[in-house]
Design a protein around this nucleic acid. Structure first.
Lengths: 120, 120
DNA sequence: CAAACCGGTTTCCTGCATGAAAGTGCATGG
DNA sequence: CCATGCACTTTCATGCAGGAAACCGGTTTG
């Protein structure tokens, strides 16, 4: 039987994969993609608008996810001095660069559904 | 200022995004990508080989993740009748089709790191 | 003054993902 | 006949993600 050397993988694989895992970590959670896609589709939105558009999200989660996206430079937060104070959230260029990946995931997801449906 | 209709989103957005979320759900967890990438890089591997290659994973997690990947048709499990019983795991074609997405995530992740590092 | 709207924060709670460690069934080796 | 290796499974414990609901400070409206 063939003997396997395990050395090569340890240095190559894990280091390179970290970056992919980073991306996954950033998009992870129940709401991140919905928030990004909603902002991408609708442009700048205020807090309450986002909460109304994204069904089911609570204010705590929305707040936390937006903070998270902001510290990751994906979303830009702007406070407007209007009569009732409003805050606008919009995708940064960096955030918009996620569109391609999300789209790939969308396409793969659709193909995957067909596979699973035809599983018999 | 442009007036926004919020109706279109409810029907368009969430339905289309489900597929992207599906993909995320499938790749979710601490180990999925590592398992897929390891199998993609090294070809068919036995249980213990996988556990030795993927540092830190326990047998329970490996077992569960592999079952999960198998039911999602991403991994093929083959039992070989050898002297001590061995089982081989390998990526299905469908599983291999994830390579493009994982690679996109890897590239984006690298770019993202630079952004964050230059955050000042 | 009370009520409502905005943009959150705080508190409490629950369930799930993950981990460590031991156990299982089978087969071969010494 | 005991130990070892393989491929798992089971048990127990823990931490974190996420949800519900109340609260907060400011401003405008009736």
């Amino acid at each position: 039987m063939k003997k396997k050397e395990t050395v090569a993988l340890d240095s190559t694989c894990s280091k390179e994969l970290m970056a992919a895992t980073d991306t996954l970590t950033i998009l992870n959670g129940k709401w991140k993609i919905q928030i990004i896609a909603t902002l991408n589709y609708s442009g700048p939105l205020r807090f309450m608008d986002l909460q109304r558009l994204i069904k089911g999200i609570g204010s705590k989660m929305l707040s936390r996810e937006l903070q998270d996206l902001e510290t990751n430079l994906l979303v830009k937060r702007t406070v407007l001095n209007t009569r009732p104070m409003t805050v606008e959230y919009e995708l940064s260029p960096h955030g918009k660069s996620l569109e391609r990946i999300i789209n790939s995931m969308r396409l793969w997801g659709k193909a995957h559904r067909k596979k699973i449906a035809a599983r018999n």
